[in-house]
């Protein structure tokens, strides 16, 4: 290499002395550092973790069979005969149903977001980086979906294809994909015009190489942040679909469905009827606050 030739100019020592000797962290390390000192995000992160663990280990944690009905034990209060959170309108143990219901709700919240991130994100990156025609083709198609109110679209798709967890997830994926695509497209278009991408082009790098090394890293941040906010929306929408009878079918335990069926008993035992709603509320707000915290931690560049 000719570059290793003798230096004709000295390395300025002062340069290095004056360089900040603060601990040098990588980007993700400094994000992590900031998160560690954010008590709100840490607390709700813990809540989210507990909810996920509870859903995963529902069979181990549930004290009763969630489908076992009891004619005499309907709508009993907290602590009745070891039913910690009482029983529902068919006498099933509510705690067990909440634990199992969490599995469905989380699945309905997370899987469509993942699908939308992959599909919408890729389309968005392609649309943002490619020329005007491709961009127009992709984005206008997305706009057609985007034009419907998301709840209405989800209801319409589920209604057309019939209920069930699978169809519900497909419906939600289709609702989220255009939004995800838009976020990815905007982020890509911004990065595309920055000097370092132009410098990479000037080096002679091809489009795929630039996408992989320079664009992806800068687009994934915003995309993941947006995805994390969508999870709570997903849980809410899934519950909404079930509530309307378009998602999960009885007797499967699901928070939205439980809310719907317990609704009739609100005058008999209002506390118990409110529990699925509380579960939805706590889960979605926890996801929201965690994603807010992550966004704040990732936002700061200095």
């Amino acid at each position: 290499m000719s570059q290793t030739a003798v230096l004709s100019h000295p390395v300025t020592e002062a340069d290095e002395q004056a360089a900040p000797a603060l601990k040098v962290r990588g980007y993700w390390a400094s994000v992590g550092y900031r998160l560690r000192y954010d008590p709100v995000t840490m607390f709700f992160g813990l809540v989210v973790l507990l909810i996920i663990l509870a859903a995963i280990f529902a069979p181990l944690l549930a004290p009763f069979d969630p489908y076992k009905e009891s004619v005499i034990g309907r709508l009993k209060p907290f602590g009745w005969k070891n039913h910690l959170l009482g029983t529902d309108e068919l006498g099933r143990d509510l705690l067990s149903r909440l634990l199992y219901g969490g599995r469905v709700s989380l699945l309905m919240g997370v899987v469509p977001v993942c699908v939308a991130t992959v599909v919408g994100g890729s389309l968005g990156i392609v649309g943002g980086f490619a020329g005007k025609r491709v961009n127009t083709a992709i984005m206008r198609t997305m706009d057609v979906f985007y034009a419907f109110p998301s709840v209405l679209l989800a209801v319409a798709i589920s209604g057309a294809m019939g209920g069930g967890i699978g169809n519900g997830m497909i419906a939600l994926s289709m609702v989220f994909t255009p939004a995800m695509c838009r976020v990815a497209e905007t982020a890509t278009a911004q990065v595309k015009n920055l000097d370092f991408v132009e410098a990479a082009r000037a080096t002679g790098a091809g489009t795929l190489t630039i996408l992989r090394y320079h664009v992806l890293g800068n687009v994934l941040g915003p995309v993941f942040i947006y995805a994390s906010t969508l999870v709570s929306v997903g849980i809410l929408l899934a519950s909404g679909l079930s509530f309307l009878g378009l998602g999960v079918r009885p007797p499967t335990a699901d928070w939205g469905l439980m809310l719907s069926t317990l609704r009739q008993s609100i005058y008999v035992n209002p506390l118990i009827c409110a529990l699925p709603g509380a579960a939805i509320f706590i889960t979605s707000i926890s996801f929201n606050l965690v994603s807010d915290g992550i966004r704040a931690a990732m936002d700061v560049r200095m």
């Binding site: 300025t12 020592e13 002062a14 340069d15 002395q17 004056a18 360089a19 900040p20 000797a21 603060l22």
Partner: peptide, 20 residues
């Protein structure tokens, strides 16, 4: 002038220009 200005988070003791 060699070097760069000091880090305002940890100023050197004494004259801040001394390192340069």
């Amino acid at each position: 002038i060699p070097g760069s200005p000091p880090d305002l988070r940890r100023l050197p003791t004494g004259c801040a220009f001394a390192p340069r």
